[in-house]
Design a binder for these strands. Structure first.
Lengths: 346, 346
DNA sequence: AATAGATGCGTAAACGCTTACACAACGATA
DNA sequence: TATCGTTGTGTAAGCGTTTACGCATCTATT
């Protein structure tokens, strides 16, 4: 049923129906009520594509991740998407997730979406940053963007930024390690470049500890990657008394590898991870990890984007989200008094 | 840039550009190549809404879950969505995820999407089934559907069905329990109605075991729910020697509760769960669970839907996906020879 | 050389909305 | 009573595509 047919059927013009739907323009309250009610009765819903075409906007925004995995494969992106969708749906917007493909491939898909007006705007998660010229091209097409990055880029008109500052949580982890007496710490990274290692190292070194380069491994993304890295660390000549693992997903594999090596967490080796995904509190023992409030992050980003899209006035274009350590049970003081054999366990 | 502007700019008509883009209609190969190349150069992308309006279709499908949680909150739905999106993107389709809200709320949103032509079709996951009249209304609006359910509904024109048959995996679990010598088995369910318990009970009883009604608890969805239920089971008068937990997510909490009760898995109590989500192999010990190939399930459903949408053939409107048990390390024979005190551990 | 069918392309009419504008009806003011 | 703003509604012109149709132009057949 088209708006024209529907309008005839209830004895008004299509313009009146349109005004009733949007509550804008001059229309008497009675007529509006009547139209709305009969819409309900007859089940009329305006054609979305015609609306989008006429209004020159789609009330849809895209979520884009420039990293090497897909949005639906990463727990943290899922949490982010959830936060975004909550706010979005309250404002009648729709979220579009870029499908498969990686990095550049998706970056250019987003540009197509922008050009075809599939989306009015986008939230872009950097990995860890966002190419500046690409961002400029996007905003030049009147597609508003909010980027989520570790370091704020130079201002780009039409683009906002929420920076995810990991330093606090990581500093707390360093402090915990050192206060427990750990001074030789291993590091299992995910993918380079990685802003976390320098932060952690600074925190550790200013307290007299160290993260020796030979105890740094960039593992990858999967639990298996984490397992391999942990095994390497733990079976090396100079076993660390504690390790920091860049993501909980890596850590779940790392912990398994450590167990299988006959070591006990946290007695023989302490572990701190990063992200605090939902399963982190259910590992054995529960994982001490840096909490990132991804839902909050998503909300901040989308609120900023909506402000840009709706008001079209320069809102505050920068926010920061911080992290903090949540202590559970994978950290304990090191065993200084004896050497532990790899296979013997405790 | 509109197609008209672009066409003028390269010296042809808009119709020619359109024909070049779609490769349909009468157009010389040379012209087509030229247009395509200049599109690349000038960065022209047709307006999606105008296309959708003119073609009366959006190449978009919706994924709908009629249960009580959101799509992005359930690991199994995420896996499903991933499988769907893979196939979809190969065919130039887009996936739309219904936002927040539960059950009926979303069911009526999907109807709106269908009426507004936001989606051409939908994949509907029942919980556990799909209201028949609702489905008929949907297909009556020319929105093709594929439902994923436990029991195939009577045929509805315009709707396909893939049934997820859990019986095999559950039967294997029953067999494993019994062959190990467990005969008093506890059950932690999720939400009723639940087709699994009858299946399990049948398998257990025909081998001489039992699932006493007092050892059946419908817990909920979260790990905490699972923990509470497991604690109740394990601290009751008649402790089961093995428990079946309806989902891995419940199980992860249940296992923690069992550990905290001082019991050892699998020595003191065996656990089998259901779903085989990604973290299942990384619990301690690795979880024996019924594997559901959600990505495959999603692929089957979307292939069927695409066949209907593209009108290739009256495809086979029914498929079945089966499950199977993956044995890891949470099952062992029961300790028959002594009574275990709750707090004492082993 | 005349005709018929292909072939390639342009013109213009949808597709179903929104909204600027026109206009009639009305009460308030001069 | 004449004038004026105000209010509610209808008319019609976009929005940017797709595609049926018509018209040249070309090749193949007689």
């Amino acid at each position: 049923m088209t708006i024209e047919e529907f309008a005839r059927k209830i004895g008004v013009s299509s313009a009146t129906v349109s005004r009733a739907i949007h509550g804008r323009g001059r229309i008497s309250p009675q007529t509006r009520q009547m139209v709305l009610q009969r819409m309900e009765e007859l089940g009329f819903t305006p054609n979305l594509h015609a609306q989008n075409l006429a209004r020159q906007r789609s009330r849809t925004i895209g979520l884009e991740y420039l990293g090497r995995t897909e949005v639906l494969s990463d727990l943290f992106l899922i949490a982010l998407a959830r936060g975004i969708q909550h706010v979005l749906s309250e404002h009648g917007y729709t979220l579009l997730l870029n499908p498969v493909g990686v990095g550049d491939e998706r970056a250019s898909l987003l540009r197509r979406w922008a050009r075809s007006r599939a989306v009015d705007g986008a939230i872009v998660v950097g990995d860890p940053d966002v190419p500046l010229d690409w961002l400029r091209k996007l905003t030049a097409q009147k597609t508003f963007c909010v980027v989520i990055v570790h370091h704020p880029p130079p201002p780009v008109p039409g683009a906002g930024c929420v920076t995810l500052d990991l330093s606090q949580g990581v500093a707390q982890a360093a402090e915990l390690f050192c206060s427990m007496g750990h001074c030789r710490i291993g590091y299992v990274g995910s993918i380079e470049p990685d802003p976390v290692l320098p932060m952690l190292r600074e925190g550790v070194e200013c307290r007299g500890g160290c993260i020796p380069p030979e105890l740094v491994i960039y593992a990858g993304r999967t639990p298996d990657d984490g397992a391999k890295a942990a095994y390497a660390l733990v079976s090396g000549d100079l076993r660390p008394t504690a390790i920091f693992v860049r993501t909980d997903v890596l850590a779940i594999g790392a912990m398994q590898a450590i167990r299988e090596a006959g070591l006990c967490i946290p007695k023989d080796i302490s572990v701190v991870a990063h992200d605090d995904v939902p399963f982190a509190q259910f590992t054995d023992p529960p994982l001490t990890t840096v909490r990132v409030d991804y839902e909050q992050l998503g909300k901040s980003a989308v609120e900023m984007l909506l402000a840009m899209l709706e008001r079209r006035e320069p809102v505050d274009l920068h926010r920061t989200v911080h992290t903090s350590l949540v202590q559970r049970a994978t950290v304990a003081p090191p065993l200084h008094h004896k050497t532990i054999s790899l296979t013997g366990g405790v």
